[in-house]
Every structure is written in structure tokens, then in C-alpha cells.
Amino acid sequence: MGFSLSLKLSFLCFIIIILSTALFSDLKLVDSASPDYTNLIYKGCARQQFSDPSGLYSQSLSAMFGSLVTQSTKTKFYKTTTGTTSQTTITGLFQCRGDLSNNDCYNCVSRLPVLSGKLCGKSIAARVQLSGCYLLYEIAGFAQISGMEMLFKTCGKNNVAGTGFEERRDTAFGVMQNGVVSGHGFYATTYESVYVLGQCEGDVGDSDCSGCIKNALEKAQVECGSSSSGQIYLHKCFIGYKYYPNGVPRGASPISGSSGSSSSSSSVRF
């Protein structure tokens, strides 16, 4: 009887181990399938650095970063100005992708101040774009550029010419351009295995947003050609697309890091 009980206990322990292994394997698969919204897409740093013997610029920058991170728990776009004098005034903003939750937005934005310091040091202006959010700051009087200026592009290396992809992509582009207006600055959709996403900066009106997105889509057609994926970042908007020949998987996103793609920066600002 003792042997029988021992055998039953051993078998029960074996079953528990198998179930635990399966459970943690499933959790690992779910985690690895989750989209990573903190991948670095690009950075732009002004060549000129702060001349800050009194530390006033550093104080203004720190105050601005703190304000942006705090607001990221409540909203997906926020713009503010800090500084005690016109010489130390700094304007900054952040924006999260429209499909991120408030918690994901905060987790994304909270990385940006430290990352900005590592990538750009004490530049008088900087822009850091992650796959889920971006940060921009500049001192008063910094040279302005057109909202249509292309800052960065990345195109997938996989060419799908001759598969009918271009027609599906262009139809998806048209749907997205209309959707971003009705969505007041953000829209994502799927059309025949093509996933597209577009977003304008939070203070851009619907009409200007439509024009910016149209410009970005046209650039994607020219710059990326028959590439199965692409991302175009203009000063005031960005778009991304990706073709999934076997159907768009759950949790997919056309916005990611530049792994497996060709990238280039076109900014004349920094």
C-alpha cells in the first residue's frame, strides 16, 4: 500500500511539472508576441550644445521632462514651455501612438528623458522617436522647418513586386488617409493583408493632417516602391505599413525598429 501511495504521489508530481512547464511556455510565447513599443526608430540631435555655466538650461530641461512624463499618465499628447527668462525658455512635447493605453504611454515616455541625454547630450534641440512615442524639445528661437519635411524613412528589404501588392497597398493608403481625418489625427486599419497606420502631431488640425498624411503616403510609394513594409516620418506626421501575405496576425504593428530594413535620415534640421 505504501508503494502504491508513493507511486501515485510521484505520478502527481510529474503531472504538476508538465502542466507548469506548459503554462510558463505559453506565458513566454504570449510575452514574445507582444508588440514592443520602446524600440528606437531614430534620433535627431542639434549640433550645438547648451552653454550652461549657471545651470539654468539644465534646470529648465529637467522641469520640462518632469512635466511631460507626469502628463503621459493622463494624455497621449502634451506640449509645454519652461524657463524663467527668454534666454532659457525651452519648448517640449511628447506624443504616444493612438493605439497605446495610458499605462503603455507612460512606460514609453518615461524612457525618453534618459534616452535623450544618452543620445544627444546637452543639444539645444533634440527629437527621439520610439516605436510607440516620441519626444521633441528645442530652445527659444531655434530654426523652424516645414511640417512636410521628411525626417526619416525605413523600407523593408523584402520586395513583393508583381503580386498585386501595390494595388492593395494603395487602396489601404486611401482608406487610411480618410480615416485619419475622421479619427482626428490617428487611424489604423487592415485591408487585404496590408496593415496601415497613420498619425499627426496632436496640435495639427484635420485639414492639415490630411495633407501631411497624403504627402507621407506619396513619399512611401516613391521611396519604398514594392517593399513589403515601410515607415515615413515627416515633421508633423508619420505613416507605417506592412504586408502580411498569410494574413495580418493578432497584435501586429507596422511600426517597429529598423531590423531587416534599409533606413536613412533626411533631416536638414539637426
Rank of each mutant, 00 (worst) to 15 (best):
M176C: 07
E149V: 09
V180Q: 02
Y195A: 01
A161V: 07
A216P: 01
E192W: 06
L197S: 00
E166V: 03
V180F: 08
E138R: 08
Q199I: 03
D170N: 12
S207F: 15
L217R: 02
F142S: 13
R169G: 01
Q199R: 07
I139Q: 12
M150H: 01
T190A: 02
A172D: 05
G211V: 05
E166N: 02
A161W: 05
M150I: 10
K153E: 02
M148L: 15
Y195Q: 06
M176Y: 07
G211F: 09
T171C: 09
G141T: 04
I145P: 04
T189I: 10
A188E: 11
V204Y: 05
E192M: 11
G179K: 10
A140M: 07
D208I: 01
G211W: 10
G132A: 11
L151K: 05
N158Y: 11
G198A: 15
A172K: 07
E166G: 00
A220N: 08
F142P: 06
E192N: 13
S182V: 14
Y191Q: 05
G179A: 13
K157S: 15
F152P: 00
G162I: 06
E138H: 13
G205Q: 12
C200E: 00
F152K: 03
G162R: 04
T163K: 15
G147C: 12
S193C: 09
S207Y: 15
Y187H: 11
C212I: 09
I145D: 13
H184A: 09
A188T: 14
A143G: 06
S207M: 14
A161P: 01
N158G: 04
K153W: 02
S182P: 05
I139D: 04
A216D: 04
A161M: 08
V175S: 03
E218C: 07
K157G: 12
N178Q: 11
E218V: 02
M148Q: 15
V194K: 02
C212F: 10
A143N: 10
L217A: 06
F165D: 12
G147S: 13
V196G: 01
G132I: 08
S182H: 11
V175H: 04
R169S: 04
A220C: 12
A140Y: 06
C133T: 07
C200P: 00
L136Q: 03
G185F: 12
Y187D: 02
G183I: 04
N178T: 06
G185Y: 10
I145T: 14
G198C: 12
G198W: 11
V204P: 01
M148C: 08
I139G: 06
S207W: 14
G198F: 11
G141C: 10
N178S: 09
G183P: 02
A143I: 11
M148W: 12
S146Q: 10
E149Q: 13
K153C: 00
G205S: 13
S210L: 14
T163H: 14
A172I: 11
V175Q: 06
F186T: 03
C209I: 11
T154L: 13
K153G: 00
S182D: 14
C212G: 06
M150Q: 04
G162A: 07
D170L: 08
R169L: 14
G162P: 06
G202L: 09
Y191W: 14
G185S: 15
K214R: 14
L135H: 02
C155K: 02
E149R: 02
L217I: 09
S207I: 15
E167M: 10
G162Q: 07
G211L: 08
